[in-house]
């Protein structure tokens, strides 16, 4: 019995241990070394430098720029995506809605697309002269915007793409959350004379808090890992306005081969994601509702 269990576990746990757990630990060690291109040929060329990488990082204006951009993406794009997902879930789940089976997969379709491919497509939709977006906006009397070429608009453009790409996923989770709210609660509210808006505020929203926190955590974790959109659409530009932490980590690590420095960036990212998850998990506990977590 015990032997069988071990045999069943090893094929899965061994690769996770070797190719995930060990590298994660090694990255931590790496972040305290000056591992660079000269160490690639011979690991002995790398030396321990203590917290030097971290100190250097905190003095690097590019790092703070990347932090600012990533937080912009997380703090604006995340809540926006959650709000759109929730609104769409309410629309699809409404009793008045017909053809739910048709709308749901349509809204969901962008989730299944390949991020790199849609980033390529959206690069053309954002074209200042021939793009569909500026054409559409011209009907509203809005002058052409150089979406990806203007430092002010490049990040909002990436946020718009990510909301389009991702809202369907969270929408499905919200629909599951909405469907799990007992009908009796609405009946009780109606008996008390609550109108539709009061029912929404008094029953739907409080009951959805655990779902919203769950959705919030996964969206946040995903958004902190922003990479493919700027890589394909802007290469981090214009003037570093879309340089994300992961893009900076990639450039330092795999373009300049400053692996020690890059590992320090990776660990700062990890620490931020961990802190964000703990805060949201703490909120989840405090709401006292753990039915769907």
């Amino acid at each position: 019995m015990r032997r069988a269990a071990i045999l069943f576990l090893i094929p899965a746990l061994l690769p996770i241990f070797l190719f995930f757990f060990i590298p994660a630990l090694a990255a931590f060690v790496l972040s305290f070394t000056d591992f660079d291109i000269y160490s690639l040929g011979d690991f002995r060329n790398a030396r321990f430098v203590g917290v030097k990488n971290y100190l250097q990082l905190f003095e690097d204006p590019l790092f703070w720029k990347a932090m600012g951009n990533t937080f912009y993406f997380v703090l604006v794009g995340g809540p926006l995506s959650v709000a759109v997902s929730l609104s769409m879930a309410l629309l699809v789940n409404s009793k008045l809605t017909r053809f739910k089976g048709l709308f749901r997969p349509v809204y969901f379709a962008p989730v299944v697309t390949t991020l790199v491919a849609v980033a390529v497509v959206w690069r053309y939709l954002y074209h200042p002269r021939f793009g569909l977006l500026n054409y559409g906006l011209s009907f509203l009397g809005i002058d052409p915007v150089d979406w990806l070429g203007d430092p002010v608009w490049a990040m909002p453009a990436i946020i718009l793409l990510s909301v389009w790409k991702g809202f369907g996923y969270n929408m499905i989770i919200f629909i599951a959350g909405l469907q799990s709210i007992p009908e009796e609660l609405y009946e009780a509210a109606r008996i008390d004379g609550a109108n539709a808006w009061q029912q929404f505020k008094g029953v739907t929203l409080p009951m959805l808090v655990p779902t919203a926190l769950f959705v919030g955590i996964i969206t946040m974790i995903n958004n902190f890992q922003l990479f493919a959109e700027p890589y394909v659409m802007t290469q981090g530009g214009p003037v570093n306005s879309t340089l994300s932490i992961v893009l900076l980590m990639y450039q330092q690590g795999f373009r300049w081969w400053n692996l020690g420095y890059s590992a320090a960036i990776a660990f700062v990212l990890f620490a931020i994601i961990l802190a964000g998850s703990l805060i949201q998990a703490g909120l989840q506990k405090r709401t006292g509702l753990s039915s769907r977590t």
Partner: peptide
């Protein structure tokens, strides 16, 4: 299956989910 440390091992595994894959890429490449 029941074996010693099963639940501990499982919890440890689930906790690791919070590590972003990018963190592992540098040593993994080496």
């Amino acid at each position: 299956y029941r074996f010693a440390g099963r639940d501990k091992l499982f919890r440890l595994l689930v906790a690791e989910m919070v590590i972003p894959a990018q963190v592992t890429t540098l040593p993994l490449f080496l």
